[in-house]
Nucleic acid binder design. Structure first.
Lengths: 135, 135
DNA sequence: TTTCTTGCAAAACATTTGCAAATCG
DNA sequence: CGATTTGCAAATGTTTTGCAAGAAA
């Protein structure tokens, strides 16, 4: 798992932030939390560290919609669901049906190695909030 | 479908390029094909047109991995598969299992409205090309 | 010392925006 | 005319890169 280099202070701190975050932060979010925690790392270092941690398999990079990549401390195989209203991103641990993937492989001829699924909808909180309004 | 404004020459030409493309071109790709076709639209106009066409439901914007958005002339509901080796993007028309989506909705509490699925693997051509090598 | 990492600034991209000129109805 | 759209350039936001200084093996 550890190829080259090691966990420097910066990388360790950034790893902890991502690991403990419940909201899939962007690099900018992480910068902000670093400042709040009394750290002041260079932007380049944050990106460097995030790439390192991603390549080491310690975190996952999510490229959902929007400009900035988000980072996820959960490395187990899982998918994501985004709330159309508040933008929240939650984890989905329901496993992708293997027979469906097999069908896709058959129909496309691809040797399929992984799937990234993003569901979109309305989260429970926003469902409540908009119960009487007409969205 | 048509809210405001109409199909100007630029939008029509760009629409035709996306519609006929077989490779999900980026804005830069489209710029290049415009030049090859003898047109010279401003970058801003290309983005403006792509947004217009997307909002009019005439094309789809894909945010796969990498920096640049890709555009797809197929607006029917479908998914995508990317070749890990050559980067090709193909269409997947195998329908997402509804009972799986229902399970995800149950487990997450979300009201799920749509799914974006990206499969990753190796396309038939690259499978052949690497048959004897050890990738 | 030799290699990797940080910090900082500049560069590289993709995309958006502001505004004057052109076009359409 | 009045509204929209184009073209161009400048601005924005994200991510990468170059390089000198610093830290680690």
């Amino acid at each position: 798992m550890t190829r080259k280099g090691l966990l420097t202070t910066q990388r360790k701190v950034i790893y902890e932030i991502v690991k403990q975050a419940k909201d899939h932060p962007t690099a900018a979010d992480i910068m902000e939390r670093l400042k709040q925690g009394g750290y002041s790392f260079a932007y380049g270092t944050v990106y460097n560290s995030l790439r390192y941690l991603t390549e080491a398999g310690m975190i996952r990079e999510l490229q959902l919609e929007g400009d900035a990549s988000r980072y996820d401390g959960h490395v187990e195989d899982h998918q994501h669901v985004i709330c159309r209203l508040c933008g929240k991103v939650d984890e989905v641990y329901t496993v992708v049906p293997t027979d469906w993937v097999a069908t896709v492989a058959n129909e496309t001829g691809y040797d399929i190695e992984m799937e990234h699924v993003v569901f979109k909808g309305v989260c429970p909180q926003c469902q409540n909030a908009t119960k009487d309004t007409n969205l």
